[in-house]
């Protein structure tokens, strides 16, 4: 591992592309940097940076262990993984909401005075990619549910009788609508965050701090 390079973990996909644009605006080297190619390591020895491209859910792992000093990741992933990292900057892109969603008919059935009464869903099954978030939310309401962990296409679960409801992230709500699902409760909203390894942040403070300040500025200026 070339120890003189500052390693930044970036997610594959759309979130990664937005992260690259932001890094570019903050003056970091991004020429040829792609988050959707087969290449997983991008070194810029001249400028002293290394980027690694990971699955979004793996980013907190790389940063927690110190394999990357910094990472860009959605707050949704952080909430699920609960890594021991510093959460430094709200990067303000990648907005999404965590919601509880039900099939339209069931959503109607739990309405009391025009408001959904989630307690009617006690002991039901909930499918989610975010079992910890789902568990925590229902526990905080004093409810017990059976959480079924899935890895994708959560909206399928209620349609085939795997679960009565889902906990998922939505950005536009289109997927829900296409699957005749209705959001009945907002858990919280999430955006992309800049996270840092606890030790790297303190050991490499003089290298990281100016970079963090530049990113804050770019974000603050509506970048």
């Amino acid at each position: 591992m070339p120890s003189n390079l500052l390693t930044i973990a970036l997610p594959k996909g759309k979130l990664g592309a937005e992260a690259v644009a932001l890094l570019g605006q903050a003056g970091l080297p991004t020429e040829g940097l792609e988050t959707d190619s087969r290449q997983l390591l991008f070194d810029y020895p001249q400028e002293g940076y290394r980027y690694i491209i990971c699955r979004p859910t793996d980013i907190p792992v790389y940063v927690d262990h110190g394999a990357a000093a910094l990472g860009v990741v959605g707050k949704d992933t952080i909430e699920e993984a609960e890594p021991d990292v510093f959460e430094l900057v709200d990067l303000k892109f990648g907005f999404c909401r965590f919601v509880v969603a039900l099939p339209e008919a069931e959503a109607q059935a739990i309405m009391v005075d025009g408001k959904p009464d989630l307690r009617k869903l006690n002991h039901k099954r909930v499918a989610s990619k975010f079992p910890r978030v789902a568990e925590k939310y229902f526990t905080s309401l004093g409810m017990q549910v059976e959480v079924i962990k899935l890895h994708g296409n959560i909206e399928l679960a209620p349609r085939v009788g795997l679960a009565e409801m889902i906990v998922d992230i939505v950005s536009t709500g289109r997927t829900l609508k296409e699957n005749q699902l209705v959001a009945v409760s907002d858990i919280f909203s999430a955006t992309a965050r800049l996270i840092a390894n606890r030790v790297a942040y303190r050991m490499e403070y003089h290298r990281l701090e100016p970079l963090i300040q530049r990113l804050k500025q770019v974000v603050g200026n509506g970048g």
Binding site: M1, G66, V199
Partner: peptide
């Protein structure tokens, strides 16, 4: 660094942590 707090309720005054280059935890 005044953001070093360590165990939240246990310590009552000065706190400190040692960091080694290349290791992700104190």
């Amino acid at each position: 660094d005044f953001s070093i707090l360590r165990d939240l309720d246990y310590y009552t005054g000065i706190v400190f942590e040692g960091y080694a280059a290349g290791l992700g935890y104190p």
